[in-house]
Amino acid sequence: MKKKPPTIRDVAAAAGVSTATVSKYINGAQRFSPAVEATIRGVIEELGYCSNPLAQSMITGRTKTIGLSVLDVSNPHFSSIIKGANRVALENGYTLLLVDTDETASRERPLLEALSRRVDGMLVYSRMAERELEWLVKLGKPLVFFGAQSQINLLSVGGDDRQGAYMLAQYLVMMGHKRVAYMGFSKSRRDEERRDGIRACLAAHQLPLLSYDSSAPTALEGERMSSSIMLGEQVPDAIVCYNDMMALGFIKEVQSLGFRVPEDISVAGFDNIQYGRYTSPPLTTVDLRSEQMGVIGMNKLLAAIAGDTSTDHTMLEPQLILRSSVMRRQPPID
């Protein structure tokens, strides 16, 4: 006959303690003398006892699971956030449960409501307007939001998009660019900050901003928009894309059209995804520290689960990553 797995009662009997003592030791709910803990630990190893996660959750009210909602898992920016968050979760004995909303706002609420029933807390990246997120707070779970909130008092973490955009535009001006364009994505709240940063810098130098809006923050959209930008009446000598994915798609297509990057047009993006350094030419970008965003977000959430009631926002400093997709423009010959 197949031998039954050992139970918590077996551990308690062999260690000479109560089942309550074993339970508290396993769940970290109480410390005991070194001798008692050593005895329990030794019996658990000897018997090969494995605690039942479901039973633990019924006792403690904790699932030891964290929910993380991202907009597009295929985008390396979000993959980096997941990597950072997961590393901290594992170090603290938590499992990450991932939801990909696929850049579709209508899917967010049902997915997050279902997720909230299975986790101890949630890290949320959302496209929904801030005024529409009150229901999220009412779910009653500890929350950390990616991106600053002005109307809802939530824990949050994010990069300084406006500052990063201003730095990038300043660099383009220093490199002699006069006709700067921005390929944006207005459905994102971060888009407004990036556009404002670029516009403010150019205005300080009395330069206009050529502005284009995309329907999705993807490489395919960067490809689609490239011909209308490069073959239109106002051809820019530099373009900043909403993210690196769009920039990579743009570079691929304009090169197919016969244009040279950066000789005919300089190209830059945001996020510093890992593939940007391997393109031809390598991509100039703004590093908003995606992986660190995941690390800080998870640490904030674990603190909230433990009872911390603070509701602060952490702003990460951007870093300009200079590569050869941007070149210096020679001054015009009189």
Rank of each mutant, 00 (worst) to 15 (best):
E221F: 04
V157E: 02
D196M: 12
A216L: 08
G147S: 08
S214L: 04
Y212F: 11
D191A: 07
D196P: 12
R224P: 04
P236N: 01
D264R: 08
Y182N: 01
L172F: 05
G184T: 05
P281M: 09
A148Y: 14
A247G: 04
M167T: 03
A169V: 05
R179M: 08
Q163K: 12
F146I: 11
G197A: 06
I273R: 07
S150W: 15
S188V: 08
G184H: 02
L209F: 04
F270V: 06
E221C: 00
H177D: 03
V144M: 07
G269F: 02
V173T: 05
R195A: 08
L202F: 09
M175T: 09
I265A: 03
S188H: 10
A165W: 00
S150T: 15
R189F: 14
I239D: 00
L154A: 11
G164H: 02
F250Y: 03
L155N: 14
A203D: 13
Q206G: 13
S188Q: 10
A169N: 02
Q255D: 07
R277L: 13
M246F: 04
A204E: 15
L202E: 03
S188Y: 05
F185R: 05
G184I: 02
A238G: 02
R277P: 10
M246E: 01
Q234R: 11
L257G: 07
R162G: 12
G249W: 00
V267I: 09
L220W: 12
P281K: 07
A216C: 10
V180E: 00
A247C: 09
S186I: 11
F185P: 03
R199N: 13
Y182R: 03
A219I: 09
Q255R: 09
I239W: 01
P281W: 08
K252Y: 13
S156P: 07
M246A: 05
T218Y: 07
M183D: 04
V180Y: 00
F185M: 06
G184N: 02
P217C: 09
K187A: 15
Q163N: 15
G164Y: 01
E221V: 00
P282I: 07
P281G: 09
P236Y: 00
E192G: 15
L248G: 05
S150I: 12
Q206I: 12
R195T: 08
M246P: 00
D191L: 07
E193L: 12
G249L: 01
V254C: 00
S188I: 09
Y166E: 09
H205L: 09
G184V: 02
A169G: 05
G232L: 05
Q149N: 12
D160F: 10
S215M: 13
E221G: 02
V240M: 04
L220M: 14
Y242E: 04
S226K: 02
I265Q: 01
S228C: 13
S228V: 14
G164K: 01
S227A: 13
S256N: 15
F259V: 05
A203Q: 15
I152V: 11
S211I: 15
D244T: 04
G197S: 03
Q274F: 15
I265C: 06
